[in-house]
Nucleic acid binder design. Structure first.
Lengths: 238, 238
DNA sequence: ATCTTTAACTGGTTAGTACCACATTCTACA
DNA sequence: TGTAGAATGTGGTACTAACCAGTTAAAGAT
């Protein structure tokens, strides 16, 4: 499985930027890059578009293409829609401890979030996420039984979203996330390995599939000193 | 001032989608669109890229291009891009105290976020936001002088984004927001009217205009017990 | 010397063509 | 009557070739 050309250019430029360049340094012009890599300008621009979109570079008409500043700070871990992906991207080794998986009748608030009727059950999955071996995030995930029947711990060796897709052909198109700051209590602070009272991000995530049916509800606690929630907002007002 | 072709295609497609199409409807194929609009495939793909990036459409290799589900639901508030709007929608009376506005040479990290060169100045605006008279959020906003020359306190009777648009014809298309949980120190806790050590959301916002030029950088502190950061995540990963 | 013009950069837009990879349908062979 | 395979449609990648539109610095005129 060989990568497309422009993705190779992306990787290469990204590495060079990371290792050899400083913020606001100028990159070679598009016409120079085209010669260096032996590809067309189209391909170069595809690669640069990607880097620009991800905030790694910025372009100024008539002046050139430059290294952004935001890129370097490693602490930027991004929003949590896929913990493992984001970790890998930022060069950290992500691990997940699946602690418990049980079939429960959820509390009313959780049931509401999942549009469950009285008595309908859901799987409750408790996970601890670590980066480079350090606890970073603790999460309780609820998955409706009617959508994910017969879910097993052994399924969860894979990424959760992979399991959803492959075993159940379910996929989250849209997720709503609410983020709140809380002071950790004794118990939770112990789990995350910090002091009681330390600030923590509490993230509520509600994911729905393409038919607007809720398929996941997760409550997470993330260490305030190590986790940054990142999102991007588009304003298409026109 | 005539728009580029592909932007016309974007507007036109966007209108059609809004007025005539339903979620998951299929758009004409790229090769059909190319004939309809009398432009090259390159141009069509540029337009579709934009719509895809903004979550309005999604593409499936071999199958076609489709209308996303998210676009319809009007609740387009996304996040905190406009404090006042959001508050009104939730039924609270928002007020803003503009405390200070001064022209400063920002620290390096702020300068970097705004892509300012050494010595370039920015307006620093300090604001306190209240809901129903209770302090809720404290924010420092930096605005590049070269983009907003001659900014005055009296301009700020209006909503900041209204001023940007009307006085300077600037508009933020995309904003990156990083959200972190912190424990408040003595000073900040006093401003927000809570106890030192209380958890708070620290929000970094970097907004750029349609030319990818940073036009705003804001650092906010929001009361953890009263403020929830809300966002939505689209996954058309397939 | 100073100002104006021009030339030579930069990224931005557009056209046209070709082929690849995935998905579906139609067709021909067993 | 199936089933393998071809044909056709979709988006994805890639190249070539121009020209447009800002920016900067060199060349020229005053």
């Amino acid at each position: 499985m060989k990568k497309p050309l422009y993705q190779q250019v992306i990787s290469d430029l990204e590495n060079k930027i990371k290792s050899e360049m400083k913020p606001n340094d100028r990159l070679p012009s598009e016409r120079q890059l085209l010669k260096e890599y032996g590809v067309s300008r189209n391909t170069i621009r595809l690669a640069l578009n990607d880097l620009e979109e991800r905030g790694i570079i910025y372009r100024l008409h008539g002046k050139g293409t430059f290294v952004s500043t935001i890129y370097l700070d490693q602490t930027n871990l991004g929003s949590m829609y896929s913990f493992s992906e984001q970790m890998s991207e930022t060069g950290h080794k992500p691990t997940t401890q699946n602690r418990t998986l049980e079939l429960v009748t959820p509390e009313e608030d959780v049931a509401n979030q999942l549009n469950l009727r009285a008595g309908e059950k859901a799987y409750k999955l408790v996970r601890l996420r670590l980066a480079d071996g350090v606890p970073l995030m603790y999460g309780e995930t609820y998955l409706p039984e009617k959508i994910f029947p017969n879910l097993k711990m052994s399924d969860l060796k894979e990424n959760l979203y992979t399991v959803m897709k492959q075993k159940y052909n379910e996929q989250s198109i849209l997720a709503f996330e609410d983020v709140q700051a809380v002071n950790l209590d004794e118990k939770d602070s112990k789990v995350l390995g910090v002091k009681p009272g330390d600030a923590s991000l509490k993230i509520f995530r509600r994911a729905i599939n393409d038919k607007n049916v809720p398929i996941e509800f997760t409550i997470s606690l993330a260490r305030g000193d190590r986790f940054i929630y990142r999102s991007r907002q588009y304003n298409h007002l026109v």
